[in-house]
């Protein structure tokens, strides 16, 4: 079900500007990998290249390979639409579609594909909605108001709705771009619990500013930093979360996790 990701020698550009240089790493299936590092070092940029959302920005492109179970998602015959379907994404700010109900938000992705053999009748849609909302720990809170607009929920609920929307299409990988940065501590806790559950089934990559959060939810941590002022971002080191936070190899990582800079 969940797939592994292998990134090799990835250079990421915004037009002529090289934003991130020479990133190489692997993500094991059914693990949570956290990207940490100071602002502007390219964590989110790297994350967005994993499902080809980076190229949505005009002029943005990459050089290098991103393999999903051995298949390069940047191959010329790969359809980015299929990539994004296979690799779901949750954004920094909760973004349920404001004109859609909670129910319609959850099935928004499924409604796009009219695949043979997949039923789209009311009953099977109901089942998908319930399963996804339960998967996002939101079902109990919204089951009585599925036809209400998604924008009426609290911030934390909206973010879990977005997670439900992402997992409703049964992706292989879930990317989370600072999913808790716009939320209060209690909602953050709910999302962190949810990540704990989701990693049973999905490969998860999460960008976070919050080192405690990285320590709590992830098994592997990657530290990103700028190579220098005006230089592109790079991955400094990656390893088991416990090691990164206790005995990192690089001095820069140690300085960052101990709060000496950043």
């Amino acid at each position: 079900m969940a797939k592994r990701i292998d990134v090799s020698d990835l250079d990421i550009y915004y037009s002529k500007f090289l934003a991130v240089e020479g990133v190489t790493f692997s993500v094991e299936p059914r693990t949570v990998t956290a990207f940490i590092g100071p602002s502007g070092c390219g964590k989110s940029t790297v994350l967005r290249t994993l499902n080809r959302m980076h190229e949505v920005i005009p002029g943005a492109y990459v050089n290098g390979k991103v393999l999903l179970d051995g298949e390069n998602i940047y191959d010329s015959d790969v359809d980015p639409v299929n990539v994004r379907r296979t690799i779901g994404m949750v954004f920094q700010r909760p973004n349920p579609f404001p004109t859609m109900s909670i129910y319609d938000n959850v099935i928004a992705g499924i409604k796009l594909e009219r695949t043979k053999g997949v039923k789209r009748d009311r009953a099977s849609m109901d089942a998908v909605v319930e399963k996804s909302l339960r998967g996002a720990n939101l079902w109990e809170e919204v089951k009585d108001r599925l036809s209400r607009p998604g924008s009426g929920l609290s911030g934390g609920q909206q973010q879990r709705l977005c997670i439900a929307r992402a997992i409703a299409v049964e992706p292989q990988v879930l990317l989370m771009d600072e999913p808790c940065s716009a939320l209060d501590p209690i909602s953050t806790l709910a999302i962190e619990d949810l990540i704990e559950d989701l990693k049973e089934r999905y490969t998860i990559v999460i960008v976070t500013h919050n080192m405690q959060q990285a320590a709590r939810v992830s098994s592997t941590t990657a530290f990103f930093n700028l190579a220098g002022i005006g230089q592109p971002g790079r991955m400094v080191e990656m390893g088991p979360t416990a090691k990164i936070f206790s005995t990192p190899t690089e001095k820069a990582t140690e300085d960052y996790v101990s709060g000496r800079f950043g």
Binding site: M1, L68, E71, I73, D75, D77, V78, D79, V81, N82, V83, R85, T86, E113, T115, K116, G117, V118, K131, E170, R201
Partner: peptide
């Protein structure tokens, strides 16, 4: 989550 075999065959391959 279970998937029907058809949907699997489509989504498994990224190449369109």
């Amino acid at each position: 989550p279970t998937r029907s075999p058809e949907s699997r065959s489509i989504s498994e391959s990224l190449a369109g």
